[in-house]
Nucleic acid binder design. Structure first.
Lengths: 209, 209
DNA sequence: CGGGTAATCCCCTGTTCTGGGGATTAATTG
DNA sequence: CAATTAATCCCCAGAACAGGGGATTACCCG
């Protein structure tokens, strides 16, 4: 509450940039470390200085906002990164998050207040526009591709994933070696595959493990 | 905009429930289909009727809110499910999302407006409290585990995960069969494992794939 | 009650892995 | 520059796997 939150802003649109500058210079809770309007400048600013928050656009004229995020994540792991963009599509969103952003607000999202979002960001939260968050949820709960393995098959699959041989799994489950291989063959049939590694891969993808 | 959003509310706290009832009966944009104060009633309501939105608590006196979500997801796949809970921990959050919730607001989150969130929910968005969203991000971008596989090893690993044999991978990469098996042996050494299935399993766990 | 399916068991044959051993040639890095 | 590591190549033997066949028992659902 006492020490102000220091911020670096990167935004190519002069009008929006000006809005941010006003926002962060007129409010005593914030300190504006730098305001950049292109990627090149931003790269050197991030290189030379440190801030609590990097607030950045994704579409820069002379480079990619993602690279800024990657650079910042690497050089200043403790800086919170907030994306403010017009892009709400899955590709942009996922890439930005994977690059290290922990906040993502759409420019046309009326429901989010930037100042408040930044405070939440510094408190460890992740302010995300609803339209953006839906992409993340999709990733977490990808459609159950409704191929069902039986209980026995799943158990065998778990043994396989742990590296047990068919014989070892058989011993552990006190069933015949032939039963185990038989289950494995069923798994192959159901998942349209033909190796153990592939089985584990598919099972993970389909959230069966 | 014209047709009101129909809602089923499940909430055991009478005061909060009353607040919701007022909220949805006094606003013409919403229609309150039902308001339940326990899981049992809610189960039969969901069974018998349909709504655009299920707004539910997680901590019910006579059952689990998660089961409500699961039931609703199954019986009414087109109903949007919003969780309003005091629980913001990872376990509750992830389970609820995986069960089918597409919105998750913390009860003490001042920054979210329930009415607005529900509208966004119906528009395909996912209103999520920042503190909750941070758990989701963690899932998507968990820390890179320190064991490093080389580029060549990773490539081979990807082939293995897809079910290719060493010979096939060798042909595709135009290198010797021996090189491929050699890389595989390195992978085994680094990950302390001994089968392909295990390699895929570990690689997924460590987010190398 | 009959059909479907899960779970269990068995055989056979050719292919592929696993896990030892070694070697050479770049790069990288202290 | 010396040491290390990556990336490439090679050999071998025994173990495990893939994929084909068939079989029995038991349970659930309509």
């Amino acid at each position: 509450m006492n020490t102000p939150i220091s911020i670096i802003v990167v935004e190519d649109d002069p009008i929006v940039l000006h809005r941010f500058m006003t926002m962060f210079t007129s409010n005593p809770r914030f300190t504006l470390v730098a305001a950049c309007s292109n990627a090149t400048t931003a790269h050197s600013v991030i290189n030379a200085s440190h801030a609590d928050v990097l607030l950045t656009d994704l579409g820069l004229p002379d480079g990619n906002g993602l690279d800024l995020i990657r650079q910042c994540t690497e050089q200043h792991p403790d800086t919170h990164i907030m994306v403010i963009s017009v892009f709400g599509d899955e590709k942009h969103v996922i890439t930005a998050i994977e690059a290290g952003a922990t906040g993502y607000i759409l420019k046309d999202d009326e429901s989010m207040e930037v100042e408040q979002a930044i405070v939440q960001l510094c408190a460890g939260g992740s302010p995300i526009s609803p339209a953006v968050a839906s992409h993340l949820l999709k990733r977490l709960r990808p459609e159950a591709d409704e191929i069902k393995l039986t209980k026995a098959e799943l158990e065998i699959l778990r043994f396989i994933a742990k590296g047990y041989t068919a014989q070892e799994a058989a011993d552990l489950k006190h069933i015949s070696y032939h039963t185990v291989t038989s289950h494995i063959k069923s798994i192959y049939r159901k998942l349209h595959i033909s190796t153990r590694a592939e089985a584990v891969h598919e099972a993970v993808k389909r959230h069966l493990l």
